[in-house]
């Protein structure tokens, strides 16, 4: 199992699986949790500028770089999509 790649290293349009959230900041974790961002979940990166827009299930969530950099993911393989 790799440590994963931060979302800010990903490109728009990629589908990824969340590996881990690398922060101990309570507020950041809380904000991500209410949108259902947990390790193991899948999300699609819709756009990366001017803010990161992620699609989780049917919700689109815009977050800034400071939040995005904590989310570590791996790209989904074609057969997983």
């Amino acid at each position: 199992m790799t440590a994963g790649l931060s979302i800010i290293k990903c490109k728009a349009g990629e589908k990824v699986r969340i590996i881990t959230i690398k922060t101990t900041d309570d507020k950041i974790l809380h904000k991500l949790a209410v949108f259902g961002i947990f390790p193991g979940g899948e999300l699609t990166i819709l756009q990366i500028r001017p803010a990161y827009v992620l699609e989780i299930d049917h919700t689109q969530l815009a977050i800034d770089r400071d939040l995005a950099k904590n989310i570590y993911v791996r790209k989904l393989l074609d057969e997983e999509v």
Partner: peptide, 11 residues
């Protein structure tokens, strides 16, 4: 202190 930005984009 800064606060990080997050907002839901509704359809």
């Amino acid at each position: 202190e800064k606060s990080s930005f997050y907002i839901e984009i509704p359809p």
